[in-house]
Design a protein around this nucleic acid. Sequence first.
RNA 1: GGGCGGGUAGCUCAGCUGGCAGAGCACCUGGAUCACAACCAGGGGGUCACAGGUUCAAGUCCUGUUCCGCCCACCA
Length: 892
Amino acid sequence: MRPGNPEALQQPYDPSRVEARWYAFWEERGVFRPESSRPAGGGPSAQPFVIAIPPPNVTGSLTMGHLLGDSIRDLIVRWQRMEGRETLYIPGMDHAGIATQNVVEKKLREEGRSREQLGREDFVREVWAWKEQYGGLILRQLRRLGVTPDWSRERFTLDPDYSKAVAEAFRRLYERGLIYRGHYIVNWCPRCRTALSDEEVDKVETQGSLWFVRYPLKEGNASITVATTRPETMLGDVAVAVSPKDKRYAKLVGRTAVLPLVRREIPIIADDMVDPKFGTGAVKVTPAHDVNDFQTGKRHGLPELIVIDEDGRMNDKAGDFRGLDRFEARRRIVEALRDAGYLEKVEPHTYAIGHCSRCETIIEPYLSLQWFVKMAPLAAPAIEAARRGKVKFFPSRWKKVYLYWMENIRDWCISRQLWWGHRIPVWYRGDEIAVGLEAPAGDGWRQDEDVLDTWASSWLWPFATLGWPEQTPNLERFYPNSLMVTGSDIIFFWVARMIMAGFEFTGQAPFPHVYFTSIVRDGQGRKMSKSLGNSPDPLEMMERYGADAVRFTMIYLTPTGQDLLFDEKRLETGRFFANKIWNAAKLVQMRLGDEDLSRVKESALTLSLADRWILSRFANAVKDVTRNLKTYRFNEAANALYHFAWNEYCDWYLELAKPRWSDDIPQDDARAREDRRAARWVAWKVLDGILRLLHPFMPFVTEELWQALPHDGECLAQAAWPKAKKAWFDAEAERQIAFLQELVVAVRNLRAENNLPPGKRVPITVRGRDEQLALIAELDQPLRALARIELLTLARDGSRPAVAASAVVQGAEVFLPLEGLKDLDEERTRLTTQAAKLLDDLEGVRRKLRNQDFLTKARPEIVERERQRLAQLEETLEKLRRAQESLRVSAE
RNA sequence: GGGCGGGUAGCUCAGCUGGCAGAGCACCUGGAUCACAACCAGGGGGUCACAGGUUCAAGUCCUGUUCCGCCCACCA
């Protein structure tokens, strides 16, 4: 097929022109639909490749973190598609309960309205309106990045179908007795005014105080002193506890203390939870405001006295302190205790305080009626799966983190006191309870007021997006998914729970592999965040450097299993690389001639040494890139491709090819014309291969170039992934070209070290073995160009220039005459330094080879290699010395 | 308190199965050579955190120390 794009390749490369044009082209062709990559006649053995996007928050916009994750996912998706697998990439969004409600409430506040004013129904309507108008920005941004999910399958976690799945999951768990409702201490955010799961609480080490407060006994003058970090909760104290083993307090157990300030009488009890070594060994017990105390209270049948309300203010039970914010109350209470002589002392104390992961407000342990999922039964198969390798983590160390969490799992509080989300599918009528999405028949049913934790819907993502609970053809074909790619920061929130849900609801793991991406940090290693303002705007990055450059660079930079320290300047790597490929393609296009190379058979060509070399290197690159993709070493894959394309194909092959495809080749020189044809074909073939390999990294520029060159097929995005042809591997050609490369480098080096301008052509004499001289003769022309040689003399023996700089390459001597130069000191110094280094190396090798243990114990090929190295070093040194000698002589 | 990861060139990091320490950026020198100055050519730069050990051989494996980062954790 002839070039599809007649437009000349512009220069320099301008990503914005190219990137605007291809997305619609792919979309129109249906490239993103799984059917488009379904292999013809693909039987049941042809396993599809399925991956789901971690649904971004509907409120979200693209961050640098997304840029990495989405680049990696699309890299894999495009690669798998080119491998010929039926490929499905499922897009969608998360309704993100708290986050979204917060955003809309904030907007209302700015408008002087509130959700309470609106009421539940209108508020929810308001959020939907917001979603339609502003939501999903992130998905539109993903198009700019060039990612290719099947948009026709986009899902939202609040879609009717999805909501059905969520309610059904709840119902099944309820029927199995894995869901219960009860009064327990939960993590409460007084600002969001909702319960949270343990995972939604960030613990922050904080320098606080330990207050020692004296509680007088009811009878006598004695007292007992407790230590507390939260004096304000003393208003809710219902007991003082000591360790049953603690002799100091043994005779106080059973007696009654009087709570200071409020003068309430409370018992002194013994309980094992008390550590006699901490504080005074006596603990105030506040069942309504502390998890431990709650359990102690249950054990001893103590009342639960709530003194802080859901806004974090002291309530009516708090007497004089009622209405105060909890921290203000703390100050006042400490003050009052001090004034009344109850405060014994204050010690500095460091401890971890929980903060709301959404709004940073300090969490209040709060006694309330909530819904919970019993997790241990769900964890069991998920633990088993990880242990047996049914689910594998990359990097593997996450397995340990996952298992530790799973094995110590606690029940999950899933009710949220919000309005935006899946309303809990439970209905009440008097003492009756019914579970289901719809109200049961009959009057008087009232639905639970709360909604579900967002993660209690997204944990169904891998199968609810495919139609579960219905046994749809999609579910049948595309479940389980093939891979999950996400950040390790949501391993517990989401990954672990998806695995549990997979087993619980579908009887199998939702995916066999989980790849965790790097966390993107700024140059100083700080996590990128909106509040710090240290995250560059991804859209701006794409405008400035191109989406291709951003994608490539992020992948090129991401270390396996390590954080990624991002610096905008690094994006130049990708931009320059795109430009390099662009220019290489321009050169090749200019030199291809009129023949349609995509129809030329390799077998009809006579390949030169350089051709065989680059095809061999290309086969190696294909192997390398593919292997690194398979093992999730994406940076290595990018690296291998970068270096092959730039340092081998561009730096050497194209240079070697240039003289061969000159326009000046006479009509009647059949051999030269044949050779030109081979060079054209190989240059095109390898470039075509590079574009294919590079396409998943840089989809836009590669599609543009591929279309502009001879190509087979209509669309690079649907072209086949290159194969490393066995016949192309050619160790001999690689060895031979390596020699010539060393030779060229040696000449350039001699020139530079002796201050000869790089442009000046110099006469060079090479003395070496027949084979070496033959090789040089074979590539005579390109060598002259590469090393800027004007006259290349090959000498098997004796003859050498009288005054010359010299180097030794694999035993061959290279001479560069220095007759015209007065000062030979530079060359002398150079030779001396080189000889000294050589001598060092030589000594090392000799020491090794003198070592009997090395000779007997090292693998034979290692010993052999050292022997050869010794011989070569000796030969080189010898020749270097002769060169030194000749310079000395000539100086006299 | 428990666990995990890291410390390699000025900076950011590769280094996979133990076998001649690497890349990009930065720096220095030279260069308008007809794909590319977003380029090309050449160069300097290392106590592989520290201390032991295993091994013929250690950046790589083991032990300890130290510094940095992260995660988990109901001592009030």
